[in-house]
Design a binder for these strands. Structure first.
Lengths: 163, 163
DNA sequence: GGCTTGCTTGGAGTGCACTCCAACTCGCTA
DNA sequence: TAGCGAGTTGGAGTGCACTCCAAGCAAGCC
């Protein structure tokens, strides 16, 4: 069991891994929990916890009872990790996963959930950009003040420019 | 005490309100806690809590002991709100405020703190954009599937396109 | 005077998302 | 055969950022 590369974020790698995984991800159970932890950025604790609360279906086990994750598990984790990273609550992720378990008849529900999340993501991008402008402004201000302190002779002049 | 407009996010309104407020914000204490709550998006609980932990200096009081916020308080809150909204921890905000209290000699420290936060904000914007791509992809996929279900005759064809 | 509304306080409580613990098993190597 | 490292479990604990509570006060209105 070699070290796993970090899970891909290419859209196709997490398209619809629950029902019709793109590229037919391998279902061979073979990755240990520590490998998956390293690859996903989640801790082993968190992986077990996700399984316990139902975010992951029960993972395959080795003869001695240890977890062995397959590629499909990795893909689901990659997608869940994206949702989590972008602020979706675990409760909403659970809702999504439970819809997915119910099959085709929940396409609308799942789409709506993702559309709502996409709106939130867009809003947050806008918020972050607005804050970036504020940070740039203040950082420049500090840069000017630090320079002024080094060159007190120019203080008067600088103050006029950047008040 | 009229309803306050939401606090501005224009960079100049939160430039350096601690030491040299831009545009010389009014120091007249006049806004009640509920007005400030409405304008800032924070609850009255949170405003009191921010003051208790030292994020805000002790706010002026009316004759009967009620808080009266001045415009400078609003500006500080606007900036702190931006930091908070973009994921800075309260502990880091406190560190920033405490640096500001120490005056000029902490310009570098404050700048460094903001520069570090700016980097985090940029990283998060990148993460959000990456997730947006994944969400777009999956939402399109669901749209296709929902359409297919309505038009079973075309299912074969559509599947070929969007697998 | 009585009622309502809005505010005050310190400390306790909440919700989320982990994160850790103690006691245990298993496979492997020396 | 002993020791080690990696894994197992349910339940308890942690840290963060609020959020609420109970009891009380002050002002305004009928």
């Amino acid at each position: 069991m070699a070290t796993l590369a970090p899970i891909e974020v290419d859209p196709r790698t997490c398209s619809d891994v629950f029902n019709q995984p793109v590229g037919d991800p391998d279902r061979t159970p073979r990755h240990s929990i520590s490998e998956v932890a390293a690859a996903s950025g989640l801790t082993a604790h968190t992986l077990r916890w996700y399984e316990r609360i139902g975010l992951l279906d029960p993972v395959d086990r080795s003869a001695s009872g240890q977890r062995r994750y397959c590629d499909a598990d990795l893909h689901r984790l990659a997608f869940l990790g994206r949702l989590r990273l972008t602020g979706m609550t675990v409760a909403d992720m659970l809702r999504y996963v439970e819809l997915a378990r119910q099959g085709e008849r929940t396409f609308e529900g799942r789409r709506d959930l993702l559309v709502a999340h996409r709106e939130e993501v867009r809003q947050r991008i806008a918020d972050l950009h607005a804050t970036l402008a504020v940070l740039d402004y203040k950082i420049d201000l500090y840069a000017g003040k630090i320079a002024d302190r080094g060159e007190p002779a120019r203080r008067q002049q600088r103050k006029k420019q950047s008040a």
